[in-house]
Design a protein around this nucleic acid. Structure first.
Lengths: 235, 235
DNA sequence: CGGGGCCTTGAACGTCGTCAAGCGATGTGG
DNA sequence: CCACATCGCTTGACGACGTTCAAGGCCCCG
């Protein structure tokens, strides 16, 4: 089933069998992308939404001076652009961080779903708003946390999100991004991100190497990062 | 009409008369708050949404060390917590920056609206996603812009948003926040915000004083801030 | 074998934060 | 009515955190 992972992370409100079937049936096709390929380009009129089935995806904005700000990182089971249904286009771009597989659902199909079930509507709407809550937590990160804490917080977030879909055991997970990506996500320079990663490693809090994250003591990292998963709305 | 200002800033998709009436009728009562009063407290279960009719409102998170990050500033016509309908509670608090007046719409009424009209659903959903787009632009601000540019960008945003509801003439508007608020919104200290405001004033870009903003040359400020209003989805 | 990502480290610099002090306006209680 | 506290604004001096510039190493791929 295409929507299995999505429903695993978005199990509230609860759908009945008919609603689940309707959602599953709304998808028209799947597609593969290679790493670094652009999935959705900003400002381009859109007529479908994209569900990530496998791999990692980033949302980002390019800045006038050539720098880049990563706005969100998506994992399997996430819609990467469900917000394009009401918005019709995006103000940022979406790109594959790794090789990925996605499934598409046309905007008309989403509209049809909202007509058939208020619960389905609420579920889809909710998923876009959890993304927004994550956006807001990132504002706090870049606005008010020090460099090392920022990175630690990001690792905590990915750890929790990946654990829910079976891609982390709580201590170790594959996180195939470069230090440059981490820097772009946290508003740091690659040089400084590198130094802070070394510090986190030396302090025994996180090891990031070769696209893998190892967390010796998840609780210690959580305390260091001031991480409270409430904003992920996992109930 | 309660929803006049809301519809002025959210005029797409277009509602027919019946939909407008249904939306208007969904509101149950209005309430006044005084400046600094908390309108919605984080983590408290909610059963209604709040539309701002008059005054200014902030969304914010308190940090463990006593600091504060402002996540968004709302102006009349904005829903301050429409996202509470799918989320059922908020991960941040909402407080009045000035004396305000709001109107409430129960969650059940929102649900009923989504059942009657897919267009209405899309409109309400869209409005929460424009908030999210603003959240993302703030990530860029705190993550990648210098202190003076950050402040300039915020003034540009407020200028555009207030102009749409007739509260700015494009050069001058009432913006009743303190320098401390500006600092909390931009991730700066009050001291540094003060210095940057002086610099902006001396450079003839913006004057912020006594809760008023004066922009001698809106185009010059826009260039300085690198401001592109696309993320506000005004079409 | 050459080139290009990515990672790593050092040294110097600069933006921004911290600490401290003083000012004016407002408000409140003795 | 004045003394005093509070709050927001302002400025200076100093220090820290993060950036910039530079160089070198590693590894993969063409």
């Amino acid at each position: 089933m295409i929507i299995d992972l999505f429903l695993r992370t978005h199990h509230k409100p609860v759908l009945d069998a008919a609603e689940r079937d309707a959602l599953e049936a709304a998808f028209v096709r799947t597609q593969d992308f290679t790493a670094k390929q652009i999935v959705v380009r900003e400002q381009v009129p859109l007529t479908q939404c994209t569900l990530l089935l496998d791999g990692f995806v980033e949302r980002y904005k390019d800045l006038p001076d050539g720098r880049r700000q990563i706005l969100a990182i998506h994992v399997p089971g996430d819609f990467v652009d469900l917000h394009s249904y009401p918005l019709k286009k995006l103000e940022h771009s979406v790109a594959a961080l790794t090789a990925i597989r996605v499934a598409f659902v046309p905007h008309e199909a989403v509209r049809a779903l909202t007509k058939t079930s208020a619960t389905l509507t609420e579920l889809l709407w909710r998923s876009t708003l959890i993304d927004a809550a994550i956006n807001r937590e990132w504002i706090v990160s870049v606005g008010a946390r020090g460099a090392a804490v920022r990175l630690a917080h990001l690792f905590c977030e990915m750890n929790v999100r990946l654990q829910r879909i079976g891609l982390s055991d709580g201590k170790r997970f594959v996180f195939p991004v470069t230090q440059i990506d981490l820097a772009d996500a946290t508003g740091l320079t690659a040089v400084h991100a590198n130094r802070m990663l070394r510090q986190l490693r030396e302090d025994g809090l996180v090891e990031f190497r070769g696209g893998e994250v190892f967390i010796p003591d998840a609780d210690a990292l959580r305390r260091f990062a001031g991480f409270d998963p409430g904003y992920l709305f996992i109930d």
